[in-house]
Structure formats: structure tokens, C-alpha cells
Design a protein around this nucleic acid. Structure first.
Lengths: 234, 234
DNA sequence: ATAGATTTGTCCGTATGTATG
DNA sequence: GCATACATACGGACAAATCTA
């Protein structure tokens, strides 16, 4: 592992465990270079990571103040799969695969992405529930030229694990948007709501490291349980 | 202005104007050091900014690929005021101040932030509309120990401009969350909706540079027009 | 398949600028 | 005014990934 990553993790664990308590200053960058025996640039790289993850606030001339926000946040921001989030929070979740078949490219994807209009996609629909209550309906549209097939087992667990560990793909970034929308028939059926009700849909275009588009996801959430948190910087 | 900021802006404008077209590579870091006559570290700082703003994708061994996503995004992410966003998109908006008075600290703030329970807050309610249709109802709760008063004129324009330009405060970060919620009577009145309808509320705890909490904001949006976009990285 | 060139990533050391107390 | 702390910038070295001949 890289030095700045090791130092980041060490500082993170020390903040979490209270070695560096909230609203106190971290040791100065100069002191940290001595503690970890690295250059100041490396320390600063670790500190920048701590800042973007919401652990500290940097102030020129003063120091790096430990914040307590990171503990509270439930990071849906960034690309994380449902399974990763569920694992982190030890939720007991169930996934039911209700569709896994090949289709033509939907036109709304052709509008945005420049690909062969005859290319096939996999359409995957999965229903996620906690304590027998449906919380999320995931629609995935996946390029067969990148991922030829989704084994049922992978669909039941994590397709990201399948992409990354089995196929060796490296996911880079996603263009994500979300908004409220009227419930479709499928929403009504699984969320047990009426056609007049709304749901929140989180739609992502997901790209690989080499910038090839390979997946579109629409995660449909009940209004009552949807929540998004982040730390915004000016 | 700092060198890396100038270079960032120059590269940004060249990407936007098509000098560096989408899906081509930027000049290598080495070439850029010659073009701008700065060190490689400075160039890399500019490139990192371009990446976080979604203009490029970096790939070790290959180069920096120009993306076309940044053009589309409507960045509500980050701390931006309604007026800043409206100005950027040249929307014709109206703001009506319907409340501006002092109150005791609401208990839900005391639950989260450690402040004097007798401190007064300013409660500001503003209704934002576009083409005579109410789009947002903003509730602001502001610490009087930091900001003693909000002049009506500032409330009509931008309170952030007032904070930063008039009072010289520097806003640093916000802890933000949003979710759907049943409409209150005020929502019903201004959005012209029923008690059974939902709205989306974006709630922020906003902090100054020195980490003092100074403002809580709840922005209530119509379901139909709310939208949030971001670029997420793995 | 391999070697070499190119490009980005990491790390070091140093110097100077700027904000804070 | 002075010491301290973070911010910016420079230049150099080597590692890791990518591409090409």
C-alpha cells in the first residue's frame, strides 16, 4: 500500500477511536512528518483525503481541526453498491431477481451515448427488501459487449463484485442524477402504492477506467425511506 | 490569482471552446509544463481540479482524456446559493420574504449542536418563484451571535453575498441531507398542493472557516421540479 | 513475447508566501 | 514584530501503467 494511504488510515482510526478528539487540532504537518518519517507532501496528501472524507477542517495559520461529522454520514455519495452499503451497516437485506434478459438498446441511452444501435443490453430488475418491506427496485441496463452475461448468482449478490473480482473490470466514475417521479405499475406492485404516489429514482450512467460506458442503473426508492447525505464545500 | 487556478481556468475554457475536444487527450503533463512554464506539481494541481469538476479522466500510462459531462451538469452539489445558481443559468426569479424575526433556538438544533440554549436565532422564510410558480420555500435559521441581523434588502437578494461581502465571513462547509416529506400547511399554501402530497427538503447545517456553526437551512422543493446531479467516483 | 519510450503516480527536499495568534 | 502553521511552487528521482516498434 502507498505511504499516504497507510497514514490516512492510521489517522482515520485514531480519530475514530478518540486518540485525536473532536474539535482539537491534529499534530502539525511538521510534527507528522517526524512521527511517520515521511516528507511533508506525503502528509499533506493524507490530510487532503481526511478533509474530503469530512474528518478534518484545514485552516491556514492555525491547524487541522478534527470534526465529528464523518461518523454520522451514510455515504450514498460516491459509487457504492447496495451490497457494500448494506454490509457496512450490517443490514439484513434480501434481493429478489425478477428479470434477467437481453434486450435492444433503449432509445434514451442512444440519445446520450454514441453506440451501435443494434447492440444488445442485459436488462436486470432486482427488488431489495429489509424486514419484508421493499425498499429499492433496481433496474440495470448492461452492455453485452462489455459484460456478456450476468449469472443468476452474481445478480443475487453483488454485480459489482462480479464485475471487479470475476471479470477484472475497473469502474471509474458515474454521472448520477436523482429526482421524484410518478410510480410505475411495477413500483405500485412492489411498494404497494397507488398510481398517484411518487417515488425517488437515482439514475446513473456508469463508466470504466478507459471511459467506456457500460451500465445504466435506475434505483427506485420509496419516498418515506429515501435519504441522501453529503458534505458540501464552498 | 494562484498559478494553478489560472491554468485550471485556461484549460477549462479551452475544453469548453473545443480547443481540446471530447475524448481526445490533453497535452501531457510534461508538455503542459513547457506551455505554461511552471513545474509539474503545479500542472498536476490544475489537472486534479479539472478531474474533480468532471472535465477529464486521468489514466496512468496513457494520459488525461477530455470528457463532455461537465457541460451538462447543473451543480447543486457544493455550497451554492439560489441566487448564484439562478445567475449562472440566467433564470428570471422572484424572491418574496414572508418572515424575518427573532426566535429562541429550536430544540432540534440544540440536539445536534452544542450552543447556549438561550441564544436567539433569526428565522427567515423566503418563497422563490419562476414565472409566477413557486419552486422553493427557504427556511433559514441564523445565529444572532454571528449575524445580528438580516436587512430586508439582503434577504431579497442573497444572504450569502451579505455574509461574505458585507460582513466578511467565510463559509467553509455544510453538512447536508435531503429526503421527501409530507407537505406542511405553508407548503400547501405556496405550492398549491394537498396535505397528502410530498415535497423534497434539503437540509443543511452550515459552518464557517473556524468550524463555528452559524446557519441551518431547509429548502423545500416541489417534487416535480427537484433534481440533483453529481459526478461520483469510485 | 519483449524492450524501450512515454505518461501518470508517488515521494523527497527545499524555498517562499500567507494567515493566525 | 515574531513564531507557528498551512499553502504554493520548484526540481529531481523512481515506480507503475500503457503503447509501440
Amino acid at each position: 500500500m502507498k505511504k499516504f494511504e497507510r497514514i490516512y488510515q492510521d489517522l482515520e482510526s485514531k480519530i475514530k477511536s478518540g486518540v485525536y478528539p473532536t474539535s482539537t487540532l491534529l499534530p502539525s504537518e511538521n510534527e507528522l512528518t517526524k512521527i511517520y518519517d515521511v516528507s511533508r507532501g506525503t502528509i499533506r496528501q493524507s490530510l487532503n483525503m481526511l478533509e474530503t472524507h469530512g474528518y478534518i477542517n484545514k485552516q491556514q495559520g492555525k491547524g487541522n481541526i478534527v470534526l465529528n461529522h464523518a461518523a454520522y454520514t451514510f455515504p450514498i455519495s460516491g459509487i457504492k453498491s447496495y451490497k457494500e452499503i448494506a454490509d457496512e451497516h450490517q443490514l439484513n437485506v434480501e434481493t429478489k431477481v425478477i428479470l434477467n434478459k437481453k434486450i435492444k438498446v433503449p432509445s434514451f441511452i442512444l440519445d446520450v451515448i454514441d453506440i451501435d444501435p443494434d447492440e444488445e443490453f442485459i436488462h436486470l430488475i432486482r427488488v431489495r427488501s429489509i424486514n419484508d418491506m421493499t425498499q429499492i427496485i433496481d433496474h440495470d441496463l448492461i452492455r453485452t459487449s462489455v459484460i456478456p452475461e450476468i449469472p443468476d448468482e452474481a445478480a443475487h449478490n453483488s454485480i459489482y463484485e462480479y464485475f471487479e473480482d470475476e471479470l477484472g473490470l475497473s469502474i471509474s466514475y458515474a454521472h448520477k442524477e436523482f429526482y421524484a417521479e410518478k410510480a410505475t405499475e411495477l413500483d405500485q406492485k412492489y411498494f404497494d402504492i397507488t398510481p398517484k404516489d411518487f417515488i425517488i429514482t437515482v439514475n446513473s450512467f456508469v463508466y470504466l477506467n478507459d471511459t467506456t460506458f457500460f451500465q445504466y442503473t435506475a434505483s427506485r426508492h420509496r419516498l418515506e425511506t429515501f435519504k441522501f447525505q453529503e458534505i458540501a464545500r464552498r
